[in-house]
Simulated scan of single mutants.
Amino acid sequence: MKALRFYAPEDVRLEEVPEPVCGPAQVKIRVRNCSTCGTDVKILHNGHQNLTPPRTTGHEVAGEVVEVGSEVNATYGSSWQAGDRVQVIAAVPCGECHECRKGWMAVCQNQTSVGYQYDGGFAEYMIVPEQVLKVDGLNRIPENVDFDEASAAEPFACAINAQELMGIEEGDTVVVFGAGPIGCMHIRIARGVHKVGPVYLVDVNAERLRMSAEAVAPDEVIDASQVDVVERVMELTGGRGADVVITATAANVTQEQAIAMAARNGRISFFGGLPKSNPVISCDSNLVHYRQLHIHGANGSAPEHNKRALEYISTGQVPVKDLITRRLPLTDVLEAFKIVENGEAIKVTVEP
């Protein structure tokens, strides 16, 4: 079968490899969609400390069961069978550490990941490892949800995790930094689930702003390369600031601006991680103190967030179909990475 194999930074090869063999405590799937994100591009260029080469990458996976290990259904009380349509979690908690026992699976200290420690979905077939089954991380796709939509459930789950930490209330004014796919998902969740008020979308890329604005229709787009973002948000809110600010981008300045523009009792999500070479920002601690601001980190998701993402997609609360603007075959997977890197689409999916 064909698979995209990572050997080293800048050495990623689409090659023929043996079809994987399903073990007794595993499930084998035919990959139908594996969507792409900025993390895939980072791995291409820089690798990752948790990724041991050679490794098949790809972590936003949906597919069809082709084989179920002999021990799976008896061990996990499941009823998986060939032909089942499934979505696979990416971040895999251990289920046993202090954080997992507290219900904080998104920050499991022993977390492993599909496409890092386990071969991922940029391949024709993939093995769902036992650890995914152990934490109930293989999910049935609802009948009215397509494979491409289901593959978007993983990044969607990360956004759900971030927003549930923030105590968003109906009518809140929201600012989202980052007009990429995750920024669009944040807007859809804030509106569809939390029924927020005005939403303002910020980016420095005018074309990306235009493309995303057509899809999610924010109340205003703010081109941060042209205007003072904090000043503009203050104007839009009558000097009060934003109730909720989400920085879905890896830029230090957006986190600093988020603090400056937050209203009293404002909630801020540092959703996008910063480069390891430059992870420090300037924080006016008095703003945090006197405005009683709440600053939240957000790291990945738990299995339950993936299930909730599929439910929101199925019920229509949070549509994602129209956010998938490019579809490519596995033979063009490296072209998909270029599209993501250049910001030429909202969401790009690969269809092995």
Rank of each mutant, 00 (worst) to 15 (best):
H59E: 03
Q131I: 01
S35G: 14
M105N: 09
N110D: 13
E99C: 09
T36H: 13
A123K: 07
I127V: 06
L133C: 03
T36N: 14
V128H: 06
S79G: 11
P129L: 02
G38C: 07
Q87G: 15
V68K: 02
G115E: 11
G121K: 04
M105D: 15
A62H: 05
C37N: 12
Q111A: 08
T52H: 14
E67G: 10
E130M: 04
A82V: 11
I43Q: 05
G95R: 09
D40S: 01
Y125S: 00
T56V: 15
A106G: 12
P129S: 04
A91S: 10
W80G: 01
V135H: 04
E60N: 04
A82W: 03
R101T: 13
P53R: 03
I127G: 04
Q117V: 01
P129M: 02
D136Q: 10
Y118F: 15
Y116D: 00
G120V: 00
V132H: 08
N50C: 03
A62G: 04
G115Q: 10
Q131M: 07
T57F: 04
D40L: 05
R85S: 04
Q117Y: 02
K134W: 08
Q81C: 12
L51G: 05
S78E: 11
N110A: 00
Q49M: 10
E96R: 13
G69E: 14
E130W: 02
A91Y: 14
E96N: 07
G120D: 05
M105S: 12
G77P: 12
K134M: 06
L138P: 14
E71N: 13
Q111N: 05
G83H: 07
C37G: 12
M105K: 15
G103D: 15
Y116A: 00
L51H: 09
A91R: 10
V68R: 10
A123R: 04
G63D: 11
T75D: 09
Y125F: 14
T75C: 10
G69K: 14
V114T: 09
N46F: 11
T112P: 04
G47L: 13
H98S: 07
K42N: 06
Q131G: 01
Q109P: 00
D84V: 00
V65Q: 12
V61W: 14
G58Y: 06
Q49A: 08
S70T: 13
E67H: 10
Q131D: 15
V41F: 03
Y125Q: 07
G47R: 15
L44S: 01
M126F: 14
K134E: 15
Q117D: 09
T75F: 07
G137A: 02
V132G: 05
L44H: 15
V132L: 06
R101Y: 13
G77F: 11
M105C: 08
A123V: 07
A74V: 03
H48A: 03
Y76L: 04
V107N: 09
E67Q: 15
T56E: 09
E67R: 10
A91F: 10
G83E: 11
Y125I: 00
Q81N: 12
V88N: 08
M126I: 04
Q87L: 11
V92E: 05
V135K: 11
V68D: 14
D40G: 01
K42A: 01
H48L: 03
Y118D: 01
Y118G: 00
Q49Y: 14
P129W: 12
E96S: 05
H59Q: 10
N46M: 12
K42C: 01
H48F: 12
N46W: 08
G95A: 01
